[in-house]
Amino acid sequence: MSATSFSFFAAAAVALGAALMAMVARQPRASLAGFAIALAALIVPLVQLRAPIVAAIVLLASALTVGLLAGLTGVNGRPDAPSVARGGRLPLAFWVPAGLGLAGFAWVLLATGSRQVVEHGPPIERGASFGDGNVVLLQIAADHVVPALVVALLALCSVIAAVLTLVVERPGASAQPPLDAPS
């Protein structure tokens, strides 16, 4: 097993395990820790695919996500007590899709290990322009102007919506009824 294969499988195992922990853990801090580990492990395959700029964006997004959500969960001001009602059994509607998901996960692991026909991309020489951040950004400016503009407008709208959500106060906001109360 080459160093590339070993690093990929190690990173994939860490990423999948941490992602599973993030989704299964019932405490927000444990979920955040698992999510951070999963994203950090995903940097390895992204770098192997010669996409360092995407890896940097993923790292930035993960740092932003973890920072904001850590601040959000820290508002609780209480230790990581189990937040699930004790004694209750999870419904069948949980166990059926969860079992299917675990079976699919096992199938993915087996299929990854037993793949007989491999498909490689064309070799890329050292020093080629593929994966260079400057080339990617120049190609965005040259060939993908419309999608970039749409995403930029979407980002602008979302930032405006987020600021308005935080700033604008409705009349009588101090006596707000519960969110799910009948009007």
């Binding site: 996409a51 991309g121 990617v136 965005i140 995403v151 979302s158 987020a162 935080l166």
Partner: peptide, 30 residues
């Protein structure tokens, strides 16, 4: 993108991550 040696896939990945950040900003604000 690596398989076809075309950076277009990386551009699509960049845009997807930016859209994810937008969604995250609104969700955090709410």
């Amino acid at each position: 993108a690596r398989f076809f040696a075309d950076p277009g896939g990386q551009i699509a990945a960049l845009l997807i991550m930016l859209v994810g950040l937008c969604e995250l900003a609104v969700a955090i604000a709410v």
